[in-house]
Amino acid sequence: MVQRPAAVAAVKAVHTLAWFSIEACVVYVLVAGLAGRTDKRVGVAAAVVAGESLVFAGNGFRCPLTGLAERYGAGNGSVTDIYLPKWFAHNLPAIHVPLLMLMVYLHARNLRRGLLRSL
Score class of each variant (00 low, 15 high):
residue 39 D to L: 08
residue 109 R to F: 07
residue 40 K to E: 10
residue 98 P to T: 12
residue 65 L to I: 01
residue 50 A to K: 06
residue 65 L to W: 03
residue 41 R to C: 07
residue 3 Q to H: 13
residue 79 V to F: 15
residue 71 R to E: 12
residue 45 A to C: 13
residue 40 K to C: 02
residue 98 P to Q: 02
residue 72 Y to I: 02
residue 38 T to V: 01
residue 50 A to S: 09
residue 113 R to V: 14
residue 34 L to C: 09
residue 7 A to L: 06
residue 42 V to D: 02
residue 109 R to D: 11
residue 68 L to W: 07
residue 94 A to F: 05
residue 103 M to A: 14
residue 25 C to H: 04
residue 103 M to D: 03
residue 75 G to C: 07
residue 32 A to P: 06
residue 12 K to A: 14
residue 2 V to Q: 13
residue 41 R to W: 15
residue 11 V to H: 05
residue 54 L to F: 10
residue 75 G to P: 05
residue 101 M to T: 15
residue 103 M to I: 15
residue 88 F to E: 00
residue 21 S to N: 12
residue 66 T to M: 07
residue 85 P to H: 03
residue 5 P to L: 04
residue 29 V to Q: 04
residue 8 V to H: 08
residue 5 P to N: 14
residue 16 T to K: 00
residue 36 G to K: 07
residue 116 L to V: 15
residue 76 N to S: 14
residue 76 N to P: 15
residue 108 A to W: 03
residue 102 L to D: 02
residue 115 L to M: 13
residue 105 Y to K: 10
residue 82 I to Q: 00
residue 105 Y to F: 15
residue 95 I to R: 04
residue 61 F to S: 03
residue 56 F to N: 02
residue 3 Q to P: 05
residue 37 R to W: 11
residue 107 H to C: 01
residue 29 V to P: 02
residue 97 V to H: 07
residue 10 A to E: 12
residue 115 L to Q: 09
residue 113 R to C: 09
residue 104 V to L: 15
residue 113 R to G: 01
residue 110 N to D: 13
residue 57 A to H: 13
residue 24 A to W: 12
residue 66 T to W: 00
residue 62 R to D: 09
residue 61 F to T: 06
residue 32 A to V: 07
residue 82 I to K: 04
residue 80 T to C: 11
residue 108 A to F: 13
residue 93 P to M: 05
residue 63 C to L: 04
residue 48 V to T: 07
residue 82 I to G: 04
residue 27 V to Q: 01
residue 75 G to K: 11
residue 18 A to R: 08
residue 41 R to M: 11
residue 26 V to S: 02
residue 87 W to C: 05
residue 109 R to W: 05
residue 114 G to F: 06
residue 14 V to F: 11
residue 4 R to N: 15
residue 86 K to I: 13
residue 74 A to Q: 05
residue 22 I to G: 06
residue 77 G to H: 03
residue 83 Y to G: 06
residue 55 V to H: 00
residue 38 T to I: 09
residue 13 A to L: 13
residue 52 E to I: 00
residue 73 G to L: 01
residue 118 S to N: 05
residue 57 A to P: 07
residue 117 R to C: 11
residue 64 P to C: 05
residue 21 S to E: 05
residue 45 A to Q: 07
residue 6 A to K: 09
residue 111 L to D: 00
residue 1 M to K: 11
residue 61 F to L: 14
residue 67 G to Q: 07
